[in-house]
């Protein structure tokens, strides 16, 4: 099972902070496509992705128990 975290505008749009979903074996890109459709998050394509708190590439493959986070463009400071 994997935990998928949403932040900022994505979190508001999804209506939740996180979901549990088994996406092991899928690429980041595949997960983005699925989540975009399922939760109406077209903006996810502008987001970076983190796996286990480290930035990941679109073709990285999710492993069992990985925590995935979609990171919209940041605006701290």
């Amino acid at each position: 099972m994997n935990k998928i975290l949403f932040f900022a505008a994505l979190q508001e749009k999804a209506g939740k902070e996180s979901i549990e979903l088994d996406v092991s074996g899928k690429s980041v890109k595949e997960v983005k496509e699925f989540v975009a459709l399922e939760y109406g998050l077209a903006k996810i394509n502008e987001s970076m992705t983190a796996i286990n708190e480290e930035f990941a590439a679109n073709d990285d493959v999710i492993q069992e128990n990985d925590v995935i986070a979609f990171i919209p463009p940041v605006s701290g400071g």
């Binding site: 505008a9 919209p72 940041v74 605006s75 701290g76 400071g77």
Partner: peptide
């Protein structure tokens, strides 16, 4: 910070 730190401002 404005490039790589996951913090957002509303």
């Amino acid at each position: 910070i404005k490039e790589i730190v996951p913090i957002w401002k509303k």
